[in-house]
Each structure stands twice: as structure tokens, then as C-alpha cells.
């Protein structure tokens, strides 16, 4: 199956990417090729096969509900590109 430029633009928005015209052109072609390649999986009859999401199928790993030390706020904020004493800062979300 081949992807259209509109498909690629839509996926870019979903992926929170903003692609240049050149990138859109290249990705439309490259993604179509890769998707075409992976479509060979359609040859296989997988009726009744349980999907395998994980190599070690462990479930319900519990620990004691005890308070453990966590990252101090200053350290958590230290790597942020923009922050004040208490919060991560982002451009205004609500309109005026």
C-alpha cells in the first residue's frame, strides 16, 4: 500500500512532528516502501494465534506499598529547558 502526502501530514501531526516539504516528500516515498515491505506478513495465516506483546510474559509484579525516597523537586526541575522554583513552564495554553 502506498501512502499519500496527506496521510504523512496527518501522521506527522499525530506524532507531534512538523516536517519540511523535503522531509514530507522523502517520507512519503520511504514509508510507502517500508509499509509495502512489511505487508508480506499478510501471507501468513495467523488465525487463532495469540499476539505476543512481550518476550517474558510476566504479569502482576507487585511490591510493598511503602513510601520510598523520590527525586527531589530541584533535581527534577534542573534539566528542564524552562522552569521556575516549582513548575515546568510552557507557552500559554489558554487563549486570551
Amino acid at each position: 500500500m502506498s501512502l499519500t502526502r496527506q496521510d504523512v501530514e496527518k501522521v506527522a501531526l499525530l506524532a507531534r512532528l512538523r516536517l519540511s516539504t523535503n522531509e514530507l516528500d522523502a517520507l512519503t516515498e520511504q514509508l510507502s516502501k517500508v509499509v509495502g515491505y512489511v505487508e508480506q506478513l499478510g501471507e501468513l495465516d495467523t488465525e487463532g494465534v495469540a499476539p505476543m506483546a512481550h518476550a517474558v510474559e510476566v504479569t502482576n509484579v507487585f511490591r510493598d506499598d511503602a513510601v520510598q525516597p523520590s527525586l527531589p523537586r530541584e533535581q527534577a526541575l534542573a534539566s528542564a529547558p524552562h522552569h521556575d522554583d516549582a513548575c515546568f513552564l510552557v507557552p500559554a495554553v489558554l487563549g486570551d
Partner: peptide, 21 residues
């Protein structure tokens, strides 16, 4: 969108796009 597009290189973008699709 701009931070991600400027921060990631072509192969990383390609895989993010493929996976998102």
C-alpha cells in the same frame, strides 16, 4: 512539534512516523 522536529534526526523521525502510522 518544532522541538521534536529540530531535536530528532531523520532515522528517528522515520521510525516515529512508521510506528505512529
Amino acid at each position: 512539534r518544532k522541538s521534536r522536529s529540530e531535536g530528532f534526526g531523520p532515522e528517528v523521525k522515520r521510525r516515529i512516523m512508521l510506528g505512529t502510522y
